[in-house]
Design a protein around this nucleic acid. Structure first.
Length: 156
DNA sequence: GCCAACGTTGGC
DNA sequence: GCCAACGTTGGC
């Protein structure tokens, strides 16, 4: 059974185009420092899960494309790099606090599915993006929501 | 840059 | 373990 997720990223730091330009179109999703998001990656994600890529904190916010989980159970290397803003002095290689998955670019939509449009979709009003103030960096998406959002993205 | 909504921290 | 203070996120 395929699971579905939504990953936020700030395109100024790492956009979907950056992901598409990586070797094999794959990159470890480092820098997540939120326990709920980490737990999704650590405890629930499986290779083959599908993930919307969402651009936040930018001019055009919304879902911009699709990726899939290509590897799980990776240790985020930035937690051990003192120069990184994601350095965590309380973490140790013996017992790493922050894990990550690797994502592989699948497609970039021709048009962004804007947050405004998403908020206007009645069946989507319960999604984490709209609830909880939209502050969770990785969130689950139900199969029903996934299909609705995907078809909305394709027809826009 | 503002501000509301969360999450984390630390004193007690 | 409570909760106030503080920091961060993210849309606008």
């Amino acid at each position: 059974m395929t699971q579905y997720w939504l990953f936020k990223t700030e395109p100024d730091a790492f956009s979907i185009d950056d992901l598409a330009a990586c070797p094999n179109k794959r990159e470890g999703w480092d820098g997540i420092r939120n326990y709920q998001a980490r737990n999704f990656m650590r405890d629930q994600m499986l290779v083959g899960d599908k993930a919307f890529i969402y651009h936040s904190s930018c001019k055009d916010v919304g879902i911009v494309g699709l990726a899939k989980v290509s590897q799980t159970g990776l240790v985020d290397p930035l937690q051990f790099e003192p120069e990184s803003k994601y350095f965590d002095p309380k973490s140790s290689p013996d017992n790493p606090r922050w894990v990550m998955v690797e994502l592989e670019h699948v497609e970039t939509f021709n048009n962004i599915l804007s947050l405004k449009t998403i908020k206007n979709m009645p069946s989507i009003s319960e999604i984490g993006l709209v609830k909880k103030g939209g502050r969770l960096s990785i969130m689950p998406v139900s199969e029903n929501e996934f299909q609705l959002l995907l078809s909305a993205a394709k027809q826009s």
